Lab assay of single mutants.
Amino acid sequence: NQASVVANTLIPINTALTLVMMRSEVVTPVGIPAEDIPRLVSMTVNRAVPLGTTLMPDMVKGYA
C-alpha cells in the first residue's frame, strides 16, 4: 500500500506548507503520494485542512 500525505496539524487556508505540517501514512482513500512531500513544501492550501486529513491534489494550489 502506498503512503499518502496527511496533515500533522490543523493547516489554515492559504498557509504555505512546511515539512512539520505533513506526515506520511497509509490511508483510504489514497491522497497525494508521500514521495511528493518535498515538492509540496512552500505550496499553499486552498482550504483549511484539519489534523489527520489526507491531502488531496485539489487542496494544494499548483499541485494538480
Rank of each mutant, 00 (worst) to 15 (best):
L17S: 00
E25M: 12
P38W: 12
P12H: 09
V26Y: 14
R23A: 10
V5C: 04
Q2C: 05
N1S: 15
V45K: 00
T18E: 09
V26R: 08
G52F: 04
R47L: 11
K61M: 15
L40C: 03
N14F: 13
P50T: 11
T54M: 03
V45E: 01
D36F: 11
Q2H: 14
A3E: 06
I11V: 08
N1D: 12
T53M: 14
I11T: 00
L40G: 01
P29V: 06
V20N: 11
G62A: 10
G52N: 15
I13T: 08
E25H: 11
V49A: 09
V41C: 04
L51R: 14
S24M: 07
L51W: 10
T53S: 15
T53R: 07
I11N: 02
L19R: 14
I37Y: 03
T54F: 02
G62N: 13
D36A: 13
V45A: 07
S42C: 05
V27K: 12
T28D: 14
E35I: 11
T28K: 12
M22V: 06
P57F: 07
A34R: 07
P57Y: 09
D58H: 14
L10G: 12
A16V: 14
V5A: 08
P33N: 10
V49I: 10
Q2Y: 11
M59C: 04
L55G: 01
S24A: 15
D36P: 00
L17D: 00
P29C: 03
K61S: 13
T9Y: 10
S4W: 03
T44D: 05
V49P: 02
P50L: 09
P12F: 06
M59D: 13
P33C: 04
T54G: 03
E25W: 06
N46G: 07
I32P: 01
T53F: 12
I37M: 14
T28A: 11
M43V: 04
E35F: 13
T9P: 01
N46C: 04
I11L: 05
T9S: 08
M43R: 12
V26H: 13
M56H: 06
A64E: 13
N14D: 13
A16N: 14
E35N: 15
P33A: 10
M59Y: 13
